[in-house]
C-alpha cells in the first residue's frame, strides 16, 4: 500500500466515523422526540409520528439517500424554480439521521413503556409535572434497557454508512472500491478489517456502558 492509498483509507475511515457519530447524535435527539410524540395523548401527533416511522422503516435506506440527494433538489426546482444545493456529506447525514431516528424512536418508546406505571404515579404524587417526571424519573431508568438495542442500531448505522456510495461520497467502502479498481482485490479486505475493528470497539464500549447503567439493580 502506498502512502497515498494509506492516506485515502484514513480519510475514508474518518468520513465513515463522522457520518456515524453525527447521524446517531442527531437521530438520538430526533428519535427521542418522536418516541415522546408516539406516546402522546394527542391523536394527531401520534398519527403523524406513526406515519413517519412507517415510511422510514418500510422503505430502503439506499432509496431514502437517493431521494434526499437527487430527488429533493429536483422537486424543489420544479416547484420553486430555484436550485437548492445540498452537499454530499450533508445529504448523507440527513438521510441517515431521518432513517435511524425512526428505528431509535421505536427503541425509546419500548424502553419508556417498559417502565412500571407506579414510577410515573409516584413522581406525580410528589408534585412533579409530566415533563419533570419524564426527565428525572422515567427516561433515566430506560438507559439500561435501551443500551443493547441502541448498540445494535449504532452498529447497523456504522455499517450502513457504506450505502452512501450511491450518492458518491468518499467514505471507506468507496475508497476501497476506487483503489481496487485496478485489480487490487486486497483493498476490499482492508476495508472489511477496518469496519470489523470499528464495530468491535463499539461493542466493547456499549458493554461497559450497559454494566455501568445496571449498577443499581
Amino acid at each position: 500500500m502506498t502512502a497515498m492509498q494509506a492516506r485515502g483509507f484514513f480519510d475514508g475511515t474518518i468520513v465513515t466515523i463522522e457520518l456515524t457519530l453525527i447521524s446517531i447524535a442527531l437521530g438520538l435527539i430526533f428519535g427521542m422526540l418522536l418516541a415522546l410524540a408516539r406516546i402522546s395523548k394527542n391523536k394527531v401527533v401520534r398519527g403523524i409520528t406513526w406515519t413517519y416511522v412507517w415510511i422510514f422503516r418500510g422503505t430502503p435506506l439506499m432509496l431514502q439517500l437517493i431521494i434526499v440527494y437527487f430527488a429533493i433538489p429536483l422537486m424543489a426546482n420544479s416547484i420553486t424554480g430555484s436550485y437548492i444545493n445540498v452537499s454530499m456529506f450533508g445529504a448523507a447525514v440527513i438521510g441517515l439521521t431521518l432513517n435511524t431516528a425512526a428505528y431509535l424512536a421505536e427503541i425509546f418508546r419500548a424502553g419508556i413503556l417498559s417502565i412500571d406505571k407506579g414510577q410515573m404515579e409516584a413522581a406525580k404524587a410528589l408534585g412533579m409535572t409530566y415533563k419533570q417526571a419524564m426527565l428525572k424519573i422515567i427516561i433515566p431508568q430506560t438507559y439500561r434497557r435501551v443500551i443493547p438495542p441502541f448498540a445494535n442500531e449504532f452498529i447497523m448505522i456504522l455499517k450502513d454508512t457504506s450505502l452512501v456510495i450511491v450518492i458518491g461520497l468518499a467514505e471507506l467502502t468507496r475508497v476501497s472500491k476506487q483503489f481496487a479498481a485496478s485489480g487490487e482485490w486486497k483493498f476490499y479486505f482492508v476495508a472489511g478489517a477496518i469496519y470489523l475493528f470499528l464495530t468491535t470497539i463499539s461493542t466493547f464500549v456499549f458493554d461497559k456502558m450497559e454494566k455501568h447503567a445496571a449498577r443499581y439493580e
Partner: peptide, 12 residues
C-alpha cells in the same frame, strides 16, 4: 403525600 402498596421507590 402518597404511600403506595408497592412502594414505587425510584430504583435508580
Amino acid at each position: 403525600g402518597m404511600v403506595f402498596q408497592r412502594f414505587n421507590l425510584f430504583p435508580h
